[in-house]
Amino acid sequence: MIYLQLFISFMKIGFTSFGGMSMIPLILEEMQTHGWMSSEDLSNLVAIAEMTPGPLGLNCATFTGTQTAGPLGGLIAVLGVLTPAFTLTLLVAAFFEKFKDSAVVRTIMGFVKPVCIAMLMGVLVTLGRDTFWAEGGGILPFSILISALMMFILVRFKWSVPKVIMSSALLGIVFYGILPLAGVGH
């Protein structure tokens, strides 16, 4: 029953992710253990979720769910990922005053955040392997070039993410669309 599997997967993702990008490693792992998606699809997913309006996590969940099991799958993935909001957060909202300055929570977050960064670094390794190495072997120099350039722009000029994605799409069209047709490279 794919819907149930989707729901449980995304419920797990929901309960163990803490905001924004920290969801990506969890999605990658769930997708690969179930064989629902390749890491290439995941990179595309991040780009699409960043390009569409609304929160990243919701966009990721909908896209993954819809990709794996149609529109109903998307709905179910979103319900799964929203389970913590409808249970834990509701509970927290009811006892907001007590939770607000809780030292336990602060200590726990002190451990969870570095782990989130570690997981993101792990995802970078996985994605980097699949992005910079061609399937038949050999590196893709243009991809490395685009990555380095965009990293520089992001850190130095603080471009917005959709802008970065649009310009790297243009670079991609030039490097991987026009140049091979013109017989340059490869």
């Binding site: 780009a47 995802v123 490395i144 990293m151 993410v161 790297s168 490097f175």
Partner: peptide
């Protein structure tokens, strides 16, 4: 082709988030 370029940009995007 565009997607290949975008995938290369996703890495710096995640890296800057990290």
């Amino acid at each position: 082709a565009a997607m290949t370029g975008i995938r290369a940009a996703v890495i710096p995007i995640i890296a800057s988030a990290a």
